[in-house]
């Protein structure tokens, strides 16, 4: 089977881990929305990209050498809520110098900032288990993922109803239904994303896949980050 471009290009580079941009392209190819983004080589290009995308933006390190961006280089790997050219330039420069110090190649990814207050952060993941094969995970996402371990699992592939039941199994379902007058999240769109992640693991040589967070909002869901690790050849 011919692999989709993001997987093929990682393979061509001899990489097991897709870049965030490649991961998001892969998600977009199966209908999971991502914020508009651009990968830039230097700070000035980042400033131009931010202007084109529209403020506020997020700036992140984009390097095949960095997997956990927010833990990298004392926290300069991810800068959120940037609303001016100066702020973008500073954040992009900080990434460039940290990369230089560490002797790695790094670009910066500029992305439209999403208001995470307007929605619930969810994790949708997939992996290939040695005994069960492709499985999907749904859970409360963002910084709370490993604190509360509020997760549910399914054997993939899953249909829409099964994906919905995975969401309904979460304790966080109350948040998604609109806790204390908050607007309810689009659980159907979330279920569609879960089913799509399951299908990705079923159909492609993916060992692990994290979409964390997925921002579940009233009008759909959006993948704010993506980590895709391929199987060994």
């Amino acid at each position: 089977m011919r692999e989709p471009d993001p997987i093929a290009s990682a393979r061509a580079d001899g990489r097991r881990t897709l870049t965030e941009a490649e991961g998001k392209e892969l998600l977009a190819s199966v209908g999971i929305d991502t914020p508009p983004f651009s990968v830039c080589e230097d700070a000035e290009a980042a400033v131009d990209a931010a202007a084109a995308i529209g403020y506020p933006v997020v700036v992140k390190v984009a390097s095949t050498a960095v997997t956990h961006k927010s833990d990298w280089a004392g926290g300069v790997g991810v800068a959120v809520g940037l609303d001016s050219a100066d702020a973008v330039r500073d954040a992009a420069s900080a990434i460039a110098s940290a990369a230089e110090e560490r002797g790695i190649d790094a670009d910066v990814l500029v992305e439209s900032a999403m208001d995470t207050e307007r929605g619930t952060e969810v994790i949708v993941g997939g992996l290939r288990d040695p005994s069960f094969g492709p499985v999907v995970l749904t859970g409360l996402g963002g910084v709370f993922t490993e604190v509360f371990e509020d997760t549910s699992h399914r054997i993939a592939p899953v249909d829409h109803a099964e994906a919905r039941s995975a969401v309904e199994d979460l304790q966080a379902i109350e948040l998604l239904r609109g806790y204390r007058g908050a607007e309810p999240a689009d659980v159907d769109a979330l279920a569609a994303a879960i089913a799509a992640v399951g299908d990705l693991v079923v159909e492609h040589p993916i060992a692990e896949l994290d979409v964390n967070p997925v921002l579940a909002r009233t009008d759909g869901v959006m993948a704010l980050d993506a980590l895709v690790v391929l199987e060994d050849h």
Binding site: T17, T67, I123, G125, G126, L127, D129, S131, F132, V135, L137, G139, T145, E146, E149, T151, S152, H153, R154, I155, E208, L209, D210, N212, L227, V229
Partner: peptide
């Protein structure tokens, strides 16, 4: 590497 891996145990998969 992933949160998904860290949060997926044998028992969860059997039960689910």
């Amino acid at each position: 590497e992933s949160h998904t891996g860290a949060l997926t145990g044998d028992h969860e998969l059997y039960t689910a």
